[in-house]
Design a protein around this nucleic acid. Structure first.
Length: 510
RNA sequence: GGCCGACUAGCUCAAUGGCAGAGCAGUUGCCUCUUAAGCAAUUGGUUCGGGGUUCAAGUCCCCGGUCGGUCACCA
């Protein structure tokens, strides 16, 4: 049973009164001729077209929106409504509406209600383009008051927000309220949509086919992560929510679909942090006859294209630092980067034991059980990652942490893999894909051995994937990117929660 | 999961261990160019939950919850 606050009870009473008066508080139909921005633009056009000293041609408009502010002055009322495009001021006067209607507006309508208002555009004494209201109608009554923000525009033109909805928990839990009162939040999600649109458009234009592969998978793979598990009752079959799209997309290359991509959700049953959410949006593409160098070039083009389309330029400010996405991005061999930042030359340490000692000398203590690859990964995150602020491709990774990547010719310990780093975190991951079925089978076996102490992260052998590869897979480059992280960069948000409409939150007692 | 911090009216925030407050929102008036409108009056509280110390707890202690930060985990 809903417990209503005193404010809500007052509004519920108003709803009762409205019904008694024969006014439907939730009418079925609404009309609108202009959005707020369109009405203002049409009025400004009319003003410009008018001859000197002559009044502009009358601009009639029917607007819809949510009441965000109201200032009643007896026989006169000013209000602001907000729609998807912005805000516009309404002007209600007893001369046109009669005292009774103006009083009714003030008494029965509240901030948060949706209304429809018709009238003629004019400019107030203070110069604001305003709708002079000749008729209005309630469209939807709000029972609960919005956690309202009030904006004050100071003389210097700055907007000061008063009593804003700021609590990050409440903003995430009640995203609808956050969106309703914080216009910049709506802008963030418009940008996010713009990024996704730009990525899709770029890949479509480059001949890639968008595909959809299973989210429910009998065997998970393509990344080292703990999966969510579920069960199909009728088939009595355990299933996993995918942790990546990789193995399915590469099967399609076997099927002669030469360029494929998928934009969708991955699920990983792991920690939640400012850059991790249990479900997140991933972009993967696979490109026959390309290698990781070609993928690098396509990546910097694709990301800079999205940046240009969404922000209007190649340079952005992220958390106070300027980042420049203009291609070409810096390319840095991982061993060089690690040598520069840590002083350790991994080429001189071919075994885990020797590398561990070298790290210990530097005063750091990684897990003593770690493989050589894991130790290199440790060096990477400990020393190198924080220095990778400008977009950088870090390339050539250790083989034993890259079971799906092809070895570098003449260097069996290294694979052709790169990761794109921006602002100190990983944005994307790509490699020349391993297409040798015998080598691939060997890698699965190696992974199984290395992870025996951690069953959940163990890479299961995917026999069907190997069968596909035995039919012949063209040489190819593959790519994966956390789209949420790109959205964080391009909207200047520190937390992934700010770019997810409904981020994962703990359950609350209701 | 560890550590640190926060949680008080619908919103934003105050309150040496000593009567729980302000602004906005709400309600009732006045007001025909306001824009955080103004003026006058007024309503509104399980101080996150539970336990303890004390003559007295929003404040101190313990347990729990949620959030934030950070570390760990995370190819």
């Amino acid at each position: 049973m809903t417990e209503y606050t005193s404010l809500e009870k007052i509004r519920l009473k108003k709803i009762e009164e409205l019904r008694k008066e024969g006014v439907e508080p939730y009418p079925t139909r609404a009309e609108r001729t202009h959005t707020s921005a369109q009405a203002i633009a049409a009025f400004e056009t009319a003003e410009k077209a008018a001859p000197e000293g002559q009044p502009p041609v009358e601009v009639k408009a029917t607007l819809t929106g949510r009441i965000r502010a109201a200032r009643a002055m007896g026989k006169l009322t000013f209000a602001h409504i907000e729609d998807g495009d912005g805000r516009i001021q309404l002007f209600l006067r007893m001369n046109e509406l009669g005292q009774e209607r103006v009083d009714w507006f003030n008494k029965m309508l509240d901030i948060g209600d949706f209304i429809q208002a018709s009238g003629v555009m004019f400019r107030t004494h203070t110069g604001e383009a305003t709708l002079h209201v000749h008729d209005f109608k309630l469209l939807a009554k709000a029972v609960s008051p919005l956690p309202a923000a009030k904006d004050e525009v100071t003389e210097s033109g700055e907007t000061v927000r008063h009593a804003a909805l700021e609590d990050p928990e409440l903003r995430a839990r009640q995203r609808y309220a956050d969106l309703a009162v914080n216009p910049e939040v709506r802008e963030t999600f418009r940008k996010r949509a713009g990024i996704i649109h730009a990525l899709r458009e770029f890949l479509d234009d480059h001949g890639f086919l968008e595909v959809e592969t299973p989210i429910l998978q009998p065997i998970y793979g393509g990344a080292a992560a703990k999966p969510f598990t579920t069960h199909h009752n009728q088939l009595k079959q355990d299933l996993f929510l995918r942790i990546s799209f990789e193995l399915y997309l590469k099967r399609l290359l076997v099927g002669n679909l030469e360029r494929v991509y998928e934009l969708g959700r991955d699920f990983r049953n792991e920690g939640v942090s400012f850059k991790h959410n249990p479900e997140f949006t991933q972009l993967e593409f696979y490109w026959a006859y390309a290698d990781y160098l070609k993928v690098m070039e396509l990546t910097e083009q694709m990301v800079s294209d999205a940046c240009l389309k969404v922000t209007g330029g190649m340079k952005i400010i992220y958390q106070g630092r300027e980042l420049d996405f203009t291609p070409p991005w810096r390319r840095l061999a991982m061993c060089d980067g690690i040598l520069e930042t840590s002083g350790i030359d991994i080429a001189k340490h071919p075994t885990a034991k020797s590398l561990f000692k070298a790290i210990a000398v530097k005063g750091k203590t990684p897990n003593p059980q770690a493989t050589r690859g894991k130790l290199i990964d440790f060096l990477l995150s400990e020393f190198l990652e924080p220095t990778l602020v400008q977009p950088t491709f870090l390339y050539d990774y250790p083989r034993d942490i890259s079971p799906l990547a092809k070895s570098k010719p003449g260097d069996p310990l290294t694979v052709e893999r790169f990761e794109g780093y921006v602002a100190g975190f990983e944005l994307c991951n790509a490699f020349t894909e391993l297409n040798d079925p015998l080598d691939q089978e060997q890698r699965f076996i190696e992974m199984g051995r290395d992870y025996t102490d951690d069953e959940e992260e163990k890479h299961p052998m995917d026999e069907d994937y190997l069968r596909a590869m035995r039919y012949g897979m063209p040489p190819c480059g593959g790519f994966g990117m956390g789209v949420d992280r790109l959205a964080m960069l391009l909207t200047d948000k520190h937390s992934i929660r700010e770019v997810l409409l409904f981020p994962h939150l703990r359950e609350t007692e209701e």
